[in-house]
Amino acid sequence: MKKIALLGSTGSIGQSTLSLCESYPDRFHPVALAAGTNLDVAFAQCERWRPQVISIATKELAHQLATRLREKGITGVEVVYGTAGTVRVATLPDADFVVSAIVGVAGLEATYAAVLSGKTIGLANKECLVAAGDLILAAAREQSVDLLPIDSEHNAIHQCLRGGASNEVKQIWLTASGGPFRNTPLADFEHITPAQALKHPTWVMGQRITVDSATMLNKGLEIIEACRLFNLPPSAVKVTVHPQSTIHSLVEYIDGSILAQISVTDMRLPILYALSYPERIAVEGKTPLTFDMAALAHLDFQQPDFERFPCLRLAYEAAAASQNHCIALNAADEIAVDAFLNGKLPFLGIPRTIEKVLADTPTGSPASIQEVLAADLRARESARSFIGN
């Protein structure tokens, strides 16, 4: 029985993870949850799972949740809040596997603390490795901790890499759907609305990641994450636009062989892979994830257009520049996407803002999580300044 601490329990990854706990009650059980601001869902999760501890965003929400639990007669659930609460969840002694699924750098401190505590990590938060990859990976090596990717692309690469030694890898290929604007005339990009950007052709995701998919900044963050996870230079991490999204990523070996991972577009599969690794669990009758081979009848691949998707170019440049630039890339994007969704910035204002912030960022590599967070804050302030101007 794996006892799970789930960071981001009310989000899509969190709820998919809990659905797997339902399907495999003899294998996985959540003992600690970190929620956000969704009080109703957090309460329902406490009612169903009776975790030892749950963290919620604010002190006020924690008080409301504790009151509701008490009124319902639910005891034995410790209610905490904020960053300290999330760290408490991530480092709970009884937990042996931590699913890191809090969006953005909000989950960074808790994920780092979990690594230092020797927990196995199922990583669905790419921003952690983008912002603090060197620190997290060094801690993971020191603690002999496995970092198992849950992002579908990196999970696919992890599976394909089981087919050969690391020194036999020539390069890896991340697939991208191309988002909703793959064929949109460039002249129309200035007029793209938030409603249009939030209509992803393949996946159902949160707002920021959906917009990031439309700009392909999300793929850019995945390039940086892949460099960290698989110890590869940016030049060995390629992107191919694959609209069908049936092949999730590929690994090319030095002898010319290419291994591809193919599956349904359902996040339960990569989550289950990470939770059960190094085993594979049969899903018949429990979690239907059967792939329809007819979907392979037509497969398209094409090179990404950097003029259409400048965010992808900016990500490669940040990856080659320094850790500070990777931090700035992510932070500036988060601020710019929020401004776009709130009608304060046009769609093409997102890459313009990122490019300005990157140009204003000094080369460097933070030596601590506190320095990472400070660099992140500076980049956010810089982005707000550019948007305000």
Rank of each mutant, 00 (worst) to 15 (best):
V31K: 00
V31L: 00
V31T: 01
V31Q: 09
V31C: 09
A32L: 04
L33C: 06
L33E: 01
L33W: 02
L33N: 02
A34R: 06
A34E: 04
A35R: 06
A35K: 02
T37A: 15
N38K: 08
L39H: 05
D40A: 12
D40N: 10
D40G: 10
V41D: 09
V41R: 12
V41S: 09
V41N: 08
A42T: 03
A42P: 02
F43I: 08
A44D: 13
A44S: 13
Q45G: 09
Q45M: 04
C46Y: 08
C46G: 05
C46A: 07
E47K: 14
E47H: 13
E47C: 07
E47G: 08
R48I: 06
R48E: 08
R48G: 03
R48V: 01
W49T: 02
W49I: 02
R50E: 07
R50Y: 07
R50H: 13
P51S: 02
P51L: 02
Q52Y: 12
Q52A: 12
Q52M: 11
V53H: 09
V53D: 10
I54F: 08
S55T: 02
S55W: 09
S55F: 05
S55I: 00
I56K: 03
I56Y: 01
I56L: 08
I56Q: 08
A57N: 06
A57Q: 11
A57M: 08
T58Y: 01
T58G: 04
K59L: 14
E60K: 12
E60L: 10
E60F: 12
E60G: 11
L61C: 06
L61K: 15
L61I: 01
L61D: 11
L61Q: 14
A62D: 07
A62I: 03
H63K: 15
H63R: 15
Q64V: 11
L65W: 05
L65F: 00
R68V: 03
R68K: 12
L69W: 06
R70S: 13
R70K: 15
E71F: 07
E71A: 11
K72Y: 08
G73F: 10
T75Y: 13
T75Q: 14
T75D: 14
T75S: 14
G76W: 10
G76C: 10
G76M: 12
G76Y: 11
V77H: 00
V77T: 03
E78K: 15
E78L: 11
E78Y: 02
V79G: 06
V80N: 06
V80C: 12
